[in-house]
Design a binder for these strands. Structure first.
Length: 478
RNA sequence: GGCGGCGUAGCCAAGUGGUAAGGCAAGGGUUUGCAAAACCCUCACACACCGGUUCAAAUCCGGUCGCCGCCUCCA
C-alpha cells in the first residue's frame, strides 16, 4: 500500500485514488522566462517517478502541468529583448520540453498555459467577488479577503496574523495586509485583458486554481505537487481561492519536493550559481543527473556537486555492465527458484517505493539485484545463470519505473556534445580493427604496442577489456 | 521575530524503538602479461553533544551547539 507524505497533515497517509483507478495529478510547472535549471529538474523527475510508479502499480494517471506564460519577469524579458511575451514564453517552453525529454520525464497529458485560460480565471475571480471573498480596489485591482476564509494557513501552518506581520510594504489599499492579489490593474505597456471590472492581468496564484479546476474536475483531485517553496504563499493561496469559490477541498494530497543547493549554497540568480540543465548535459549524461536526483529522498534538500554526477555516472556503468552480461545469456524461461528471486527483489523494491516514494532505498534494492546478477554470472552454473537472468530482469523493471536507462544505446546516456557529434563517432569496424591489432600485439608479447593502443582508446573515451580466449570487448565510457 | 527542516563512516545516503541498507572513494586479495570489469575481505561497539524514558533508542522526551530553508519572485 502506497503511503505518501501529505503536507496538509504533516504525516504519511495511505494513498488511494479517489475513484480507485485514475489518479488526477497537478504539478506546478515553470514560469517560462529563462532556461530550465537544476531546480526545475527535481520536481519534474520526482513527480514523473511518482507517476511511473502509480502506473506500474496499476493506476491510470492524468497529469496536468501548467506553464506560467504571463508575469512580471516575462514582461521585463520581452522588453529587454525587444520581443513579445509570447515569443519569450514559447522559446522557453520549447527548451523546457527538450531539457525534460532528455531526462526521460514523460509528457503530461495537458500543459495548459495561463494566457489561454484568462476567461476561466476571470470567471473564478468574478465568483469570488460575487460571494464576498474578493474585493475591488482602484482601477481594476482585485484582492482576496484572507480573514474571511477560515481555513487559511492550514497547509503552511501560518495564521493570517503571522502573515500580516511578515509582509513587507503591503499595498496600503488592501483591507488587510495579509490579503493577496487575484487580479492586477493594467499598467501602460503591459499586456492586459478586458474584464467586467476593468482591464488588467491575472495574479500569480489564480491560474492554477482555474486550470486545475477545469482539467481535473471534480474537486478535490488526488495529488497536487510542487517545490517546497510553493507551500507558502502559492499553494496556501490556491487552496483559499479554490475552496472559497467552490466550497470543496482543492486536492487530497499535497506533495512537496526539497531544494537543490549548489555546493551547499542556495541556488539563486543573485549568487550567480544557477546551473542550467543544458550546461550540465554538456559534461554528464542526463541519466546521471536523474540517478543523482533519485539517490536522495525527494523531501530532503540535496547539494549538487560535480563529484556526485561523476559518482552517478559510475553507478550507471556498473548497472549497465551487469545487464549487458546477463543479456548475453539469452532469453531463457525462468524456473521456480529464479522466479522467486525475481519476485523477492520486486517485492522489496515495491516496499521501498510504497514508503513515500523512497527511491534512495529502492536504489539499494536495485544495486542488490545488480550484485546478485554479477555474482550468479560468475559461477557459470545453470541455476546461477537463471538467477542472474531473473535479477537482471528485476533490475530492468526497477530501472524502467525509475525512468533510468537499461541499455547503453539509450539517448539518456549521451552528453549534449555527443548527441550533436553523432556523425563523427568512429564506426565499429574501425574500433574492432584496432582491437584486433592489439590482440595480435599481445600474442606477439609486444606489450608496449598493445598498451599504447589501449591508452589511446581510453583517451578517446573507449575502454577495451580482455576476455578469456584472447577475445576482447570495446565499450564507450559514459 | 514567526514557521519548518536537518546534523549517520573520507564523501553521498537509507534506516523513526530491537541491536547500523546501499553507492562512490580507499586498502588487501582472486583474476590478468599489465590492466579493466567482476567477486571476496577490510572500512561507524557507532548515528552532533548532554541528560531522561525503556528490558531495549540513531530512532521517543527535554536541553545545548551547529547548518539550512520559507515568511519577497523562485522548483
Amino acid at each position: 500500500m502506497l503511503k505518501l507524505h501529505n503536507t496538509l497533515s504533516g504525516k504519511k497517509e495511505e494513498f488511494r485514488a479517489s475513484d480507485g483507478a485514475t489518479v488526477r495529478m497537478y504539478v506546478c510547472g515553470p514560469t517560462v522566462y529563462s532556461s530550465s535549471h537544476l531546480g526545475h529538474a527535481r520536481p519534474a523527475v520526482v513527480f514523473d517517478t511518482l507517476r511511473r510508479y502509480l502506473e506500474f502499480s496499476g493506476h491510470t494517471v492524468k497529469l496536468v502541468t501548467n506553464f506560467t506564460d504571463i508575469d512580471d519577469k516575462i514582461i521585463r524579458r520581452a522588453k529587454d529583448e525587444g520581443s513579445t511575451e509570447r515569443e519569450i514564453s514559447q522559446k522557453y517552453i520549447n527548451e523546457y520540453f527538450e531539457d525534460m525529454d532528455a531526462l526521460n520525464v514523460g509528457r503530461a497529458d495537458i500543459y495548459p498555459k495561463a494566457t489561454e485560460h484568462v476567461q476561466e480565471m476571470i470567471d473564478l475571480v468574478q465568483k469570488l467577488l460575487d460571494n464576498g471573498y474578493a474585493y475591488r480596489v482602484g482601477e481594476a485591482d482585485v484582492f482576496f479577503r484572507v480573514h474571511k476564509f477560515s481555513g487559511y494557513g492550514r497547509l503552511s501552518g501560518r495564521t493570517p496574523d503571522q502573515v500580516k506581520e511578515a509582509r513587507i510594504e503591503p499595498d496600503e489599499r488592501k483591507e488587510n495586509a495579509e490579503d493577496f492579489a487575484l487580479w492586477k490593474a493594467a499598467r501602460p505597456d503591459e499586456p492586459s485583458w478586458e474584464t467586467p471590472w476593468g482591464k488588467g492581468r491575472p495574479g500569480w496564484h489564480i491560474e492554477c486554481s482555474a486550470m486545475s479546476g477545469k482539467y481535473l474536475a471534480p474537486l478535490p483531485f488526488d495529488i497536487h505537487g510542487g517545490g517546497q517553496d510553493l507551500v507558502f504563499p502559492h499553494h496556501e493561496n490556491e487552496i483559499a481561492q479554490t475552496e472559497a469559490a467552490f466550497g470543496k477541498p482543492m486536492a487530497r494530497f499535497w506533495l512537496h519536493n526539497g531544494f537543490i543547493n549548489i555546493n551547499r549554497e542556495k541556488m539563486s540568480k543573485s549568487l550567480g550559481n544557477v546551473f542550467n540543465l543544458r550546461a550540465a548535459y554538456e559534461s554528464y549524461p542526463p541519466a546521471a543527473l536523474r540517478l543523482f536526483l533519485l539517490g536522495t529522498h525527494y523531501r530532503t534538500d540535496i547539494s549538487y556537486t560535480p563529484e556526485r554526477l561523476k559518482e552517478a555516472t559510475a553507478g550507471l556503468e556498473r548497472i549497465l555492465d551487469a545487464l549487458e552480461k546477463a543479456e548475453k545469456l539469452g532469453d531463457r524461461e525462468l524456473n521456480d527458484e529464479a522466479e522467486q528471486e525475481y519476485e523477492s527483489a520486486m517485492k522489496h523494491f515495491g516496499e521501498s517505493m510504497d514508503d513515500d516514494l523512497n527511491t534512495a532505498a529502492a536504489l539499494g534494492v536495485l544495486y542488490g539485484s545488480i550484485h546478485e546478477t554479477n555474482l550468479a554470472l560468475q559461477s557459470g552454473q545453470d541455476q546461477a545463470e537463471l538467477n542472474a537472468i531473473a535479477h537482471a530482469k528485476a533490475a530492468g523493471a526497477m530501472l524502467k519505473v525509475l525512468g533510468l536507462p537499461t541499455r547503453r544505446s539509450d539517448n539518456m546516456l549521451k552528453t549534449r556534445s555527443e548527441a550533436g557529434a553523432q556523425a563523427a563517432a568512429p564506426d565499429e569496424a574501425l574500433l574492432n580493427a584496432l582491437g584486433e591489432a592489439r590482440a595480435l600485439a599481445r600474442t606477439e608479447k609486444a606489450f608496449a604496442v598493445s598498451d599504447f593502443i589501449r591508452e589511446r582508446l581510453i583517451e578517446l573515451g573507449y575502454e577495451i577489456r580482455d576476455l578469456p580466449d584472447g577475445k576482447f570487448e570495446i565499450k564507450r565510457r559514459l
